[in-house]
């Protein structure tokens, strides 16, 4: 169980994490979702006692991290792929980590085996690829067989095979009754892995809910219609209570009525329909919409840039 209450962290004038309260329960994978720079990593570092919050507090199994008797046996964390010395072998890295918490040395071989690094255990970790480094980080997290696990962007640098493996690993860990918090900026990845979501933007809580609930609550019901008589169709839609708009390509996008209702409407008014498509907003769209006001680093689209650069001609 991870609990944060009013967690706040400032860097100078920038508020990285702002009064953040959420609870991560055991038994399910909880996705920690937010755009880059939204404060996910900072929050995780505060949970682990690495960064000191300016206000609020974080508890793991009811204690502050610094008060845990055997931290690695209660909490495992993958913070970033590079929390090891490049000159040390994978086995030696895990050996010293095990010694800090009186973890039996045999456990080192077990976790090396779990993450598939046994064959390269004696190689200097600096020679590892990003994916192998990520696996070593996951091995470190699993070392103490902890009941609480935090993974910061665990699939970074992994190949499709590795991504699938991490997904299974996270679900298996949760199904064993562990508390699993996984951060990501990719909603679709989370939809495949997580059951619950903690969504943040600019360090503040946007949603704390289940993935299913998040999806259904924020699903839009727009329908796209292509017709040779758009004006008449729009008029009919408006009278029926829908909110239609005509796009650049001449197609109508209407919300407020289902595709079934719109089909019936077309038949009543003898309107020709070439295409009738329910538009389901992807999870990604929902996420983008929710966090659009809280994105820190936004790239401007080419159109926006062109518009702002354009000089009046004549």
């Amino acid at each position: 169980m991870i609990v944060t209450r009013g967690l706040t962290k400032r860097y100078g004038k920038t508020v990285a994490v702002d009064d953040l309260s959420f609870t991560v329960s055991p038994g399910v994978v909880t996705g920690f979702l937010g755009p880059n720079g939204s404060g996910k990593s900072t929050t995780m570092r505060m949970v682990l006692g690495l960064d000191v919050p300016d206000a609020g507090s974080a508890y793991v199994n009811g204690s502050a991290y610094a008060d845990l008797s055997w931290p690695l046996r209660e909490v495992g964390a993958l913070l970033d792929a590079k929390a090891f010395h490049p000159g040390r072998s994978a086995r030696n890295h895990l050996r010293w980590l095990a010694q800090t918490n009186d973890i039996p040395p045999a456990r080192v071989d077990t976790v090396l085996d779990i993450v598939g690094l046994t064959a390269v255990a004696e190689r200097r970790a600096g020679k590892f690829s990003l994916g192998m480094g990520q696996r070593l980080g996951i091995a470190s997290a699993l070392l103490g067989d902890p009941g609480v696990l935090l993974f910061d962007e665990p699939v970074n640098g992994l190949d499709p095979e590795g991504i699938r493996w991490v997904r299974h690993l996270l679900r298996d860990l949760a199904s064993e009754g562990r508390t699993v918090l996984v951060s990501s900026h990719l909603i679709n990845e989370m939809a495949l892995t997580a059951e619950r979501l903690v969504v943040i933007g600019r360090g503040t809580l946007i949603a704390e809910t289940s993935v299913d609930d998040f999806t259904s609550r924020h699903q839009s019901d727009a329908v796209r219609i292509v017709t040779p008589t758009p004006q008449r169709f729009v008029a009919a839609l408006s009278r029926a209570g829908a909110r239609p708009s005509v796009g650049d390509d001449g197609a109508i996008v209407a919300s407020g009525l289902s595709s079934v209702d719109i089909g019936e409407l077309a038949a009543q008014h003898a309107l020709t329909v070439h295409e009738l498509t329910p538009l389901r907003a992807s999870l990604e769209d929902v996420f983008m919409e929710l966090t659009s006001t809280s994105v820190v680093y936004r790239a401007h689209t080419a159109d926006e840039a062109a518009a702002s650069d354009a000089l009046p001609v004549r």
Partner: peptide, 19 residues
């Protein structure tokens, strides 16, 4: 790399039980 069977034991049965 092949997918390895998961052998993470439960907290109590795992190798990290308190000494």
């Amino acid at each position: 790399m092949t997918t390895l069977p998961l052998t993470t034991g439960r907290l109590t049965s795992g190798g990290a039980a308190a000494r």
